[in-house]
Write a protein that binds this DNA or RNA. Sequence first.
DNA 1: CGATTGTTTGATGAAAGTCAAGTACCGTGG
DNA 2: CCACGGTACTTGACTTTCATCAAACAATCG
Lengths: 180, 180
Amino acid sequence: MIVICKGWVTSSISLSDGRRQILAFFLPGDIVSTPSLFEPISGRLIEAVTEVTYRKFKRSELKTILFKNPSLFEKVSKCWIEEKANSDQLALDLGRRTADERIARLILNLAERLAKRGMVHGQTLDFPLRQRQIADATGLTPVHVSKVLGEFQRADLIEISNRSLVITNEPALRQIAGPK
Amino acid sequence: MIVICKGWVTSSISLSDGRRQILAFFLPGDIVSTPSLFEPISGRLIEAVTEVTYRKFKRSELKTILFKNPSLFEKVSKCWIEEKANSDQLALDLGRRTADERIARLILNLAERLAKRGMVHGQTLDFPLRQRQIADATGLTPVHVSKVLGEFQRADLIEISNRSLVITNEPALRQIAGPK
DNA sequence: CGATTGTTTGATGAAAGTCAAGTACCGTGG
DNA sequence: CCACGGTACTTGACTTTCATCAAACAATCG
């Protein structure tokens, strides 16, 4: 089991013909894949987006710790439910939302998570993602991602430069992100 | 916690404007939503596709049983991992596969699960789904689902009638379902 | 049997994909 | 410091896939 200390990480699956879907971004403090707490998980590719530092825990140790403190199961269960909720939202986004909505939501979602960690200054946040990664996370093509991000910037909703992003008009961006 | 004894059940989430995504179909023997083993889960709608019979377990009882038999945690953990794997596949399907692939895979997937339960006779299986439900599971419109199913039938891949489905050309259907 | 709900079909449109060319942005080695 | 090569991003023309709309037809059920 791995906990991110610094940097961004993705988890993804791909088809043999190269199509790829990013399932989640992990930020500092996140546990990489709760289901793999007890057992390894196959078919998923964990990749660094940026330079990363992390801590690794032995599964065997975890088990003994957990069984000594049954109250921790509450925590694990919470974690699990949260992760399931994220998966479900992802399915809803990919199945039922437009490209604009998906991209707007990805940005807002990351901003929110970074804010919780005190990693947003004003409305500015580190944004190390390549457009190819945004595409793989939203089920779109890099070309289309470029067009949408271009529109967002021309509409003064966001500004991207130097791997950092400013949300210049959050209400409007939320508007585009669509109903909850 | 609920276990299906007879019939089909869906779990779904929706947006306030009515867009809906079906997250899973539960068949006889399935546990409805493992994450809800310990805690209730919100925002999800559980619906019967057919007449359903089920068994209900009290969460409190479950907990005591589990803590008396720690070996059961292995089972729970397996179940959890399986469910996560399904979520991930769903994301991949919705994000990266074409309409034909999604529908072919849905059919094959259900057939496989029913087969495990001895509920397929020859190549014939009960198929109570409405096209609207197939649409909500695959992120498509009912109209498009109708067209694709029509093509599949005209190409003699499947036959649908009276809420039952025959896979008449499984290899070809797998072909359409695309790479794994 | 009428009313409702589900399915089929065709015409049309919109969203997103593909292709291709050009530009900007690095990192490396000279 | 600059030139080179590679990757990433942008843009426009064009295509494909799927959605929308609408009408007809079928099935289901009180």
